[in-house]
Design a protein around this nucleic acid. Sequence first.
DNA 1: GTTTTTTATTTGTATATACAACTATACTGT
DNA 2: ACAGTATAGTTGTATATACAAATAAAAAAC
Lengths: 157, 157
Amino acid sequence: MTTTNMRIEEIIKSNVTLSDSKKIILNVMYTHNVIGDKFSEILKPHDLSSEQYNVLRILRGQKGFPANMCVIQERMIAKNSNTTRLIDKLLLKDLVTREVCPDNRRKIEVQITQKGLDLLKYLDPMVIEHENYFSSNLNPDEVVLLNDLLEKYRQLK
Amino acid sequence: MTTTNMRIEEIIKSNVTLSDSKKIILNVMYTHNVIGDKFSEILKPHDLSSEQYNVLRILRGQKGFPANMCVIQERMIAKNSNTTRLIDKLLLKDLVTREVCPDNRRKIEVQITQKGLDLLKYLDPMVIEHENYFSSNLNPDEVVLLNDLLEKYRQLK
DNA sequence: GTTTTTTATTTGTATATACAACTATACTGT
DNA sequence: ACAGTATAGTTGTATATACAAATAAAAAAC
């Protein structure tokens, strides 16, 4: 389990002073882990990984229309994960269906099942609570500011 | 490859407006990926993963003293990774040594080799450049502010 | 001094990530 | 129509992550 309520130097038990630039990187990495750990606790009782959850949410967003592999991949946060094998796992749990697209036999149409929709609906309040859990440490202006700073920070040159 | 220079809604191609709380989570996740992708480019020519690099840096920080598995694990960002198998990979490349601690035969003493130190020294300038690459998008005050906001954000209650 | 508990690490299994190679289908140009 | 190329997805291999079980040594309890 990750530790919080500490500055990043304490967390990695660094005995030297870190540059602010290095601290941002460590803080982003560490915050990512803290968020992920807490989110996994919600999903764990349902044998869902956060990546599997993410795919289900993308499929629900399709509002009844199927999504092919390309569409799923481009909407995922971690673009390089292996969508085929993620869908395999969801299929085994009857949370999605997979069919060859009749118009283009290269494409695969993936759809969320009623069972998948029910699971997401059950999880919704817990997911929203999770989203607000950490951001309630900040006031509304700071929440907006943090988003802006992260977006400005990661611009490529 | 991850995409940048976009707001998080564009990146995940969301057709609905996201709450600012949800946006922070997505922004942290996504920024984590962008940083990691760029860092992997530096390490890739040397067949090092970022986790392997992290272990080497911890060992260099020991300044000649060996570190046992517990110490390494508690200083890593991702605490739950499997240290034994990470060290296995570093051993194969002669970047570390591993010996049973004479005082306590349960413990394992891991040390960085000269080859490991040389590799880190070679990588140092590129690593510093990487750290400054993104933070140069912000002014010095914003850099400090982003660190403060991330640390405040992730406090547990 | 032997049993019990704790500590330190390893091993096993499942999933995820990263990347390259491969297969199959569709499209393009001639 | 056919060759070449592009697109969509799958498979293979290596590494990493997550977690539980196993092993072994040290410390504590009695």
